Amino acid sequence: MRVNTVSFKNKNVDVAADVYFPPGFDPTEKYPAIVSAHPIGSCKEQTSGTVYGKRFAEAGYIVLAFDASFQGSSGGEPRHVEDATWRVEDFRCAADYLVTLPYVDEERIGVFGMCGGGGYTWTAAMTERRFKAVATVTGVNMGRLMRQGDMTPDAAIKTLEAIAQQRTAEARGAEGRVDGFLPPSVEKATELGLVPPLHIDMAEATEYYKTPRGATPNGTNLSLFSSMAATVGYDAYHLAEHLLTQPLMLVVGNKPGEFGAYRDAFTVFERARSQDKEVVVIPDVSHYDLYDKPEAVEPALAALIPFFGKHL
């Protein structure tokens, strides 16, 4: 398969992306396109590009799988920023790039996101009308997850207080605090008690990102703590009942985990103004099964590819 590495601008940041081309690509023809966004702490070389992006391209789409600003192969300093505002703007800039390509049909651009990238996908689609169809796999509202924290009533306030203290320290010359989302190994996760069924998502995330199954150099699962305040205040559901009108498909597994993708899908489904919307629940499948396991990915694609085919 032909894959070109490109970049586009988000303000002063160079956003790195891979463009996947369909079989028999003819640059004189017009093709539908899909923007594909990676999970939190991930990169385009993992599930959003090499699994779903590749398969969408095989189905006839130009696919733009990008790394978030400040992450992966994209530019931006400081590194490991997880800022919801920047993440959503990346999508708009991706659309800007696609409409400059003569072989992309600007009236047939869809958007797709995984995990936290899925939550940003919902938000981006609300204000980016060039996206004509919206689909996510195991999408998560990162703001809700950040506010949930340790599940105590004041979890969000405690997080914001800690961020404020860290920003003060950095303003006075301290080093930035970079946190890992996950334990360093499956063995460490087990030692910490992060095991199913109570901690199915943490256990399976560690098994995906910290073993040869999914590990890549740019899939760091790191975040600059002082950059997280905007994400604590972010809500992927906000204004969905007014602005999320495009056809919408939400794919989840039926094994709910602590990251909350299952409930987020049904919340967005209920709130979205879209007339054509569907939640697809894959049986006997968890959040991280949907990243790369054929028994989860194949039924997801069996729903997603016809969905995009209908609306693009």
Rank of each mutant, 00 (worst) to 15 (best):
T138N: 07
N141C: 12
N141Q: 15
M142Y: 11
G143N: 05
R144Q: 10
R144G: 09
L145W: 04
L145E: 09
M146N: 06
Q148K: 10
G149Y: 09
G149P: 13
G149E: 14
T152A: 09
P153F: 00
P153T: 02
D154R: 06
D154E: 14
A155G: 05
A156E: 07
T159Y: 02
L160C: 07
E161A: 13
A162W: 02
I163L: 02
I163F: 01
A164Y: 08
Q166K: 08
Q166T: 12
R167S: 13
R167K: 14
R167W: 02
E170P: 05
E170D: 06
R172K: 11
G173D: 07
G176Y: 02
V178I: 15
V178W: 02
V178D: 04
G180P: 13
G180T: 11
F181S: 04
L182V: 07
P183M: 09
P183H: 08
P183S: 14
P184Q: 08
V186Q: 10
K188D: 11
K188C: 02
A189W: 03
A189M: 06
A189K: 11
A189Q: 05
A189I: 05
A189Y: 10
T190N: 06
T190Y: 07
E191K: 00
E191G: 04
L192K: 05
G193T: 00
L194M: 11
P196G: 06
P197V: 10
L198M: 10
I200N: 13
D201R: 03
M202W: 01
E204Y: 05
A205V: 03
E207R: 12
E207C: 04
Y208N: 06
K210A: 06
A215M: 09
T216A: 15
N218A: 07
S223T: 05
S226N: 15
S227G: 15
S227R: 15
S227F: 04
A229M: 11
A230N: 10
V232E: 04
V232D: 03
G233I: 00
D235F: 14
A236W: 01
Y237C: 15
A240L: 07
A240F: 06
E241H: 12
H242A: 10
P247T: 04
P247C: 10
P247Q: 03
L248S: 13
L248M: 15
L248W: 14
L248G: 12
M249K: 10
M249S: 03
L250W: 06
